[in-house]
Amino acid sequence: MPVALLPILATFLGSIVAGLAFRVLATLGFAYMTYVGVGALIDSVQSQVQGLFSAVPPSAAAILGMAKVDIAINIMIAAVTARLLLAGMDKVTGSITALALMNKAGG
């Protein structure tokens, strides 16, 4: 009797494992594509900002350098990257972090 159930059990477990493996690979593929896409987007924004700053006259560039505008722009780009990272982590794990909870509460 148990020998007769073995092919049914093998088919059942095979279908579960195949579905789970497909979901894991699909999730990893989407995560990789998102990572590559966001990285390319941030690199594009940084190169665009650097290109715009290269067109600034030298006297204005000196004033912007003393005002540390370049550091402020880098901080803003890093903040956007961190926000995207936290949002992606919330989606992957299914948990809500304290920062995401504060954002949803309007705080």
Rank of each mutant, 00 (worst) to 15 (best):
1 M>N: 14
1 M>V: 09
1 M>W: 13
1 M>K: 02
2 P>H: 11
2 P>V: 12
3 V>R: 09
4 A>I: 07
4 A>L: 13
4 A>H: 08
4 A>N: 09
6 L>K: 13
6 L>R: 15
7 P>Y: 03
7 P>E: 09
8 I>C: 06
8 I>L: 08
8 I>M: 13
8 I>A: 07
12 F>L: 13
13 L>I: 06
14 G>W: 02
14 G>T: 05
16 I>M: 12
16 I>W: 04
17 V>T: 09
19 G>T: 10
19 G>C: 04
21 A>L: 14
22 F>H: 14
23 R>L: 10
23 R>S: 04
24 V>M: 10
24 V>W: 14
25 L>T: 15
26 A>G: 03
28 L>T: 14
29 G>P: 14
29 G>Q: 02
30 F>S: 05
30 F>Q: 07
31 A>T: 07
32 Y>R: 08
32 Y>N: 03
32 Y>C: 05
34 T>W: 03
35 Y>N: 04
35 Y>D: 02
35 Y>R: 08
36 V>D: 06
36 V>N: 05
38 V>E: 00
38 V>W: 00
39 G>V: 11
39 G>E: 00
42 I>H: 00
43 D>T: 05
43 D>N: 12
47 S>I: 13
48 Q>D: 10
50 Q>V: 09
50 Q>C: 09
51 G>R: 03
52 L>D: 04
52 L>E: 06
53 F>C: 01
54 S>L: 11
55 A>E: 11
55 A>L: 13
55 A>V: 12
56 V>Q: 07
56 V>N: 04
57 P>S: 12
58 P>L: 15
59 S>Y: 04
60 A>H: 03
60 A>D: 15
60 A>E: 14
61 A>T: 08
62 A>G: 07
62 A>Q: 10
64 L>G: 08
65 G>W: 05
66 M>S: 13
66 M>W: 03
66 M>C: 02
68 K>F: 10
70 D>G: 08
70 D>R: 15
71 I>H: 14
71 I>L: 07
72 A>S: 13
72 A>I: 14
73 I>A: 06
73 I>Y: 02
73 I>P: 04
74 N>E: 11
74 N>L: 07
74 N>Q: 12
74 N>Y: 11
76 M>T: 11
77 I>T: 13
79 A>D: 14
79 A>Y: 06
79 A>T: 15
80 V>T: 00
80 V>D: 00
81 T>F: 10
81 T>K: 09
81 T>G: 06
81 T>P: 01
82 A>T: 08
82 A>M: 09
82 A>E: 11
83 R>Y: 11
83 R>C: 05
84 L>I: 13
86 L>H: 01
86 L>V: 11
87 A>T: 00
87 A>P: 00
87 A>I: 00
87 A>W: 00
88 G>R: 00
88 G>H: 01
89 M>N: 09
89 M>I: 06
89 M>D: 06
89 M>G: 06
90 D>G: 03
91 K>H: 09
91 K>Q: 08
93 T>L: 01
95 S>A: 15
96 I>D: 08
96 I>L: 15
97 T>A: 13
98 A>T: 14
100 A>V: 07
101 L>Y: 12
102 M>H: 11
104 K>E: 03
104 K>W: 07
104 K>P: 01
104 K>F: 00
105 A>P: 02
106 G>D: 01
106 G>R: 07
